[in-house]
């Protein structure tokens, strides 16, 4: 990954910090950074932290259109610049972090992670159909991931429960990411850019850990050893 990007999960969306510098330089590098993580961003709701950057409506509208071409919805602009605020308001963007949608009202509690620079979140609940969690770090769920629910994580996904929905680990391109669950039978499992469909289960469910080995999905027993 060549261009670093500072972001954090906010409920069902992401808050991305736009780096300092000249707009004509920052804009293409921001888009490139997003393109490098296109799997992770596809379908995301994004708020941009713009600090005191001054942009007119044309520049901001152009950025929104670029994001929209990448299937990213720009929802909000956080800024102290008056011009940018006016431009954002003209485009119908929120000027503060939007209240999470009623059905996606999650507390994402950051927890300690031993991987430096990686944040992790803990969800102590069952994710039901329609729920979507998107986080740049690791995601730990204590509960089930039901059919129709979705977890997209930049890092690993650990579920203390049943996985029946869609889980995407390493969505920012990390092929070393893993998915662990007590009962792993997702509708679809993705790691980095690879997609797999669970085989029909035979026998009793057991804890499993799925990962990529030489570009192929493998699931191993997730046990003490």
């Amino acid at each position: 990954m060549s261009i670093p990007l500072s972001m954090k999960g906010i409920g069902d969306g992401l808050l991305v910090t736009v780096p300092e510098g000249t707009w004509s330089v920052v804009r293409p590098s921001l888009l490139q950074a997003i393109d490098e993580r296109s799997d992770f961003f596809r379908g995301a709701y994004v708020a941009l932290q713009m600090a005191n950057r001054s942009l007119n409506a044309a520049a901001l509208g152009g950025l929104r259109d670029e994001l929209s071409e990448r299937e990213i919805v720009l929802t909000a602009i956080l800024t102290t610049s008056k011009q940018t605020r006016v431009a954002g308001a003209d485009l119908g963007l929120a000027l503060e972090i939007p209240r999470p949608n009623i059905d996606q009202d999650f507390e994402l509690d950051p927890i300690e992670s031993d991987l430096e620079g990686d944040e992790a979140v803990l969800l102590h609940r069952t994710l039901r159909s329609g729920h979507s969690i998107r986080h740049p770090g690791h995601v730990v769920v204590i509960g089930d991931v039901n059919p129709g629910a979705e977890v997209v994580a930049g890092g690993n996904v650990v579920v203390w429960g049943r996985v029946r929905g869609v889980v995407h680990a390493g969505a920012t391109g990390n092929t070393k990411a893993v998915v662990c669950a007590l009962d792993l039978a997702p509708t679809q499992l993705r790691i980095a850019a690879q997609i797999s469909i669970s085989p029909e289960r035979k026998g009793k469910p057991r804890p499993e850990m799925a990962m990529l080995k030489n570009g192929q999905f493998v699931a191993e027993g997730w046990e003490h050893n």
Binding site: I102, D103, Q104, D105, R128, S129, G130, P147
Partner: peptide, 18 residues
């Protein structure tokens, strides 16, 4: 049936959020 259960699950999630 699977589709009805899926929708029921979504509704339960929304009542939780309320």
């Amino acid at each position: 049936e699977v589709s009805a259960v899926r929708d029921a699950d979504r509704i339960i999630g929304m009542t939780e959020a309320e």
